[in-house]
Design a protein around this nucleic acid. Structure first.
Lengths: 158, 158
DNA sequence: CTCATTGCAAAGCGTTTGCACCAGT
DNA sequence: ACTGGTGCAAACGCTTTGCAATGAG
């Protein structure tokens, strides 16, 4: 999941601005900056990491505004909220990506995306079989990532 | 997911007691009662519903003890913790059940279990393909359950 | 008798809300 | 001008922790 090149990034942020105007909502500086940051990131950002990066950029934006803007980004369909059982949410751009699920490393917390068409086709059918009108689903695989496995092997020697 | 008959229930609670003794941990009244309640339930209980039922049984057991005992039940392998994005966890007996995943109704919160062998086989393989040593996974399908669909249709008439 | 558990209350942590002030449109 | 946004701090809900009193082995 490479981060989008600056052209695509700018285009997606512009799409958010358009969405705001469509909703008769003001386009403000905090919204612009947060959208740029989340949309431009290749990782799964928490409110904490977002706040830190905003501070690093010299912005003084309150936590409440971050939450409120993330809510808008999710509602616009450009961003998705994830809950990996860490006790807080992580946000990722979805616009311009194919539907995917997540692998989560239980050692280092790294999140890797994977796409599997058969899986995506199966789940709505399973819902059907149980009388559920499928709306969305989530699949998470927890395990140890390649790097942590290697590190573990290294650790055995010492 | 029927609740276990009283024989099986007693047997599972006894298994928890044995596990505690193996760990050199005291078997206490709160632990007994909480284990009986969670193991005897056919639904997915939150700490809130557990506390309410304890009070209804006339027990005066603190919240901290409920959390601590649930932790033990999970560690013993008899109980599993679930996180359905409601902001709190739900606990269910797993001993004596086949491996399963969950359907969650977004209207009424009802949780239904489903088992799918193919799904369970797929996920460790997908992990492998991405260099992950699979440890566990979770799959949740969110949608509207049969009852709520019916209620919705009824609502259209009025 | 000793060490872990219990209940209670306080603290923690991510998230939401209330509010006076400020800014897009 | 009007409507909604912003930062700050307080409130929230679930969960964890500190501690003196209690109880299991």
């Amino acid at each position: 999941m490479p981060s989008p090149d600056s052209a695509e990034r700018a285009q997606l942020v512009e799409r958010f601005r358009r969405w705001l105007r469509d909703q008769r909502l003001p386009v403000t500086h905090p919204r612009d900056v947060i959208a740029d940051l989340v949309i431009g990131s290749d990782s799964h950002e928490s409110v904490g990491t977002i706040a830190a990066q905003l501070k690093a950029r010299g912005e003084r934006i309150g936590t409440a505004t971050i939450y409120r803007t993330l809510d808008l980004l999710v509602r616009s369909g450009l961003v998705r909220a994830n809950e990996f059982g860490e006790g807080f949410r992580r946000f990722e751009r979805v616009a311009g990506k194919e539907r995917h699920e997540h692998l989560v490393c239980v050692r280092c917390g790294r999140v890797v995306e994977f796409a599997n068409e058969r899986l995506e086709r199966m789940l709505p059918i399973i819902g059907d079989e149980h009388g559920f009108r499928h709306e969305r689903h989530r699949v998470e695989i927890f395990g140890t990532c390649r790097d942590c496995l290697q590190r573990e092997l290294g650790g055995l020697r010492s």
